[in-house]
């Protein structure tokens, strides 16, 4: 039980580190958001559930914490991404396509 929980915490911590690494390494806001959302949500989920496995009496509260993280983290990141697009942060030069001109509410924001 103890070893399984420690392995879960280890996986979670590894993904948290990779998410932060992606924040530093990737080229523009949108790609950074990708790394920042997925890796940190997953890593936090695994770390918290791992703590719940190591101490079985804590499991239910740990589950509640992970549930809140799973619900709130994508929403706040989505709000940040939308704000970035609306305030006209440019895409990276290597981007392939930008279809946001077809979208009604972005017709008059600056191009690329």
């Amino acid at each position: 039980m103890h070893i399984a929980g420690m392995i879960a915490i280890g996986i979670g911590v590894l993904f948290l580190f990779l998410g932060s690494f992606g924040i530093v390494r990737l080229p523009d806001v949108y790609n950074r958001l990708q790394a920042g959302t997925k890796c940190t949500t997953f890593g936090c989920l695994f770390a918290v559930l791992g703590v719940g496995i190591v101490e079985p009496a804590w499991f239910w509260k740990a589950l509640l914490v992970s549930l809140f993280v799973l619900l709130t983290n994508p929403i706040s990141n989505h709000a940040l991404g939308r704000a970035a697009k609306k305030s006209g942060v440019p895409l990276w030069d290597g981007s392939v396509v930008d279809k946001s001109r077809d979208f009604p509410s972005y017709a008059n924001t600056e191009k690329l």
């Binding site: 890593g43 918290v48 940040l80």
Partner: peptide, 15 residues
């Protein structure tokens, strides 16, 4: 974005 990430990392650290 960096602040949001550091928040999630901090939650895991506290647990």
């Amino acid at each position: 974005v960096a602040l949001d990430t550091v928040t999630t990392v901090t939650t895991a650290l506290l647990v």
